[in-house]
Nucleic acid binder design. Structure first.
Lengths: 359, 359
DNA sequence: CGCTAGCCTGAAATCGTTTTCCGCGCCAGA
DNA sequence: TCTGGCGCGGAAAACGATTTCAGGCTAGCG
């Protein structure tokens, strides 16, 4: 009923052959103006829309890209996805989103599924604990792929967009150190998860630069799971060396850490300084507002989409295969007080307004 | 290179015809065990995967469903989506996600696009300001569709899963009234947005039940935009009648309202009681924790997926076309203090721990 | 022993496009 | 006048599967 009108109907309506209809509608050269307009009129009248499947079968291509994530229920991922999806959509590509549920074996299964569906391109931002098999499989696939804030591979057709986690992390540590903190703890995701590793390396490098001791017991890795992060934070905060500052890498981990702090009766900004590694509603609106490392998520998504588009169309004239985008440290009250200073009253209202400003 | 192995290769390898290969692999009856195993072996050896496009063209169906949202960058939507997507994925369906960017005209365009791609089913949870054209178009499409927390239509093949916004909203009002509040304000999304309307009707009904006056100036509608919500909340709070309690319908609006409260120096739970209409990280972790109406988002998503699956397979034996799922009021500190009581110290740590417990 | 019913399988039609191939007419140049 | 080239458009192949159709074989029954 809905999709009954085929190219044959249009051909009959316009009194031409199906081949001519196809040529006319696809803007081929050597089609007379008269025939073209006749076909256009017929197509318009019948509300003809070429069948996607037949088109794709013949052309060997689907005009759709697969997007693989560990979970979409994460404000950072979903914001990036939305931006990328809109950019791709503007170029006629539809996006099928697959979630690997943060499981490595599903990772590869999802990629297989997408390959079977003959997606024209892939964006991969999965967060499996052992990403290696998936990365290797992506290389074998021969499909243009953008690794999104993940480690690049040397395979042809595999591109990468990354955030510059290092520089802002070093800024964050410089900031904390300047405020007198020396026991600065770090809680990240899995140790081999790319952003976590980058942040952790920068954290260690910054300590080294400041001639501060590396304390292994202050570095904790956990999985992307609020309960696990909560437990790890609790362990850290109840261990012998009580840190005076805490850096949490990732918003799920932030949630767990905040719960641990609250359960221990530690007040953020007074008893302990807190830096978060992504700027989300929670960091802006929390009382006190939480210092965070911000990146332009929409830019990240759009850049991934553009890189993929370039990779999918053949006109790729000497394009960068790996792009690294800047990040920014946003100072807020959670790191405002210097160490060992007594708790002061919150800042005046006006200042508060500025700090919690939109964006 | 990747997808070169076709059914002909398998047929040649197994020394049978292509028709037999198809029958063997699709578990047709009347296929000898010997032939079946021979084909299986050949398929396995060649790593044959039937071409999705050819299969779909012949069968006239894609095994994929379209999911239309206003924006996926919303923790409530993305959680629902993920649950639905996983359930559909478990049954062999892939989901292509389209965002209408909260624009009505894009709404219809997105649906057209999905229809052209011959999706086998649709889940619609768009949030355009004027949803009517889209709803009508969905009915004309003749594709099994689930309206997700949106108004149902009387069209055949159109189903609906909704949350029972009314009962919890009435509970919330009863709770606030029992604490002495009489000037209870309501800020919602667009007036014709289904959840907003349901909540607002319940709000008004509850006031009526309690013999409290309806004050039109305490009911505000805004759009799904943090800035707009912020502005509207500011207007409300600075108008003549200062409400002692505030109900915000939706998490984007919550963010705007919290900013307005903070900018006015109003402390949640002390100067004003606050009830949020979706329980997200922010409501749990905010200080003080915010009383919220909770619903099982995963159940919502899974139910939508199951309803759609039933609608897509022909075996629909007298199934409910509209399902309404329960909601629940979660009491937290933001509504703990009775009106006009002086500000007391926060609850003891232990109690706090219980209140911010996971789930 | 012959006929039929039923299982099994190969050949071919089919899905709706795109694209190749070919032929027709026309015009210009020899 | 013949011919080669070019613009145009029709016919049919191709894409890769599923499904129909028909026929061969076996077994069972008269």
């Amino acid at each position: 009923m809905t999709q009954k009108v085929t190219i044959h109907d249009v051909a009959q309506q316009a009194q031409v052959s199906v081949g001519s209809v196809s040529r006319a509608l696809n803007n081929y050269p050597h089609v007379s103006e008269e025939l073209r307009s006749r076909v256009m009129a017929a197509a318009l009248e019948l509300d003809y829309q070429p069948a996607f499947l037949a088109n794709g079968l013949r052309r060997g291509q689907t005009n759709s890209v697969g997007f693989l994530v560990g979970t979409i229920a994460n404000p950072v991922i979903s914001t990036i996805f939305e931006a990328a999806s809109e950019a791709l959509s503007d170029h006629g590509y539809a996006v099928t989103l697959l979630s690997s549920r943060n499981q490595a074996q599903l990772d590869v299964a999802c990629l297989r599924l997408l390959a079977r569906r003959q997606v024209s391109g892939l964006i991969v931002s999965s967060a499996a604990e052992s990403p290696e098999p998936a990365r290797r499989y992506v290389g074998e696939l021969g499909i243009p792929t953008v690794m999104l804030d993940r480690e690049a591979t040397s395979d042809e057709l595999v591109y990468a967009v990354q955030s510059d986690h290092e520089s802002s992390m070093r800024q964050a540590l410089a900031h904390l150190i300047s405020r007198g903190h020396r026991e600065i703890a770090f809680i990240g995701g899995p140790e081999d998860f790319y952003p976590t590793r980058q942040r952790c390396l920068a954290y260690q490098a910054a300590l080294l630069d400041a001639d501060l001791p590396q304390r292994p017991e202050l570095i904790r890795f956990t999985s992307f799971n609020e309960r696990a992060a909560y437990a790890e934070a609790l362990l850290l905060l109840q261990s012998g060396t009580q840190p005076s500052a805490l850096i949490v890498a990732g918003n799920i981990i932030l949630a767990g850490a905040l719960m641990a702090l609250q359960d221990l009766g530690l007040v953020v900004g007074r008893d302990i300084a807190l830096v978060a590694c992504d700027d989300i509603n929670l960091t802006r609106l929390y009382r006190p507002p939480i210092t965070a490392i911000r990146r332009d998520l929409k830019l990240l998504g759009v850049t991934a989409a553009r890189l993929l588009l370039r990779g999918m169309q053949v006109e790729l004239n000497e394009i960068e295969r790996i792009i690294k985008l800047p990040t920014e440290l946003v100072l807020r009250e959670s790191t405002q007080y210097a160490r060992a200073l007594p708790h002061k009253a919150p800042a005046a209202r006006k200042e508060g307004a500025i700090r919690t400003t939109l964006n």
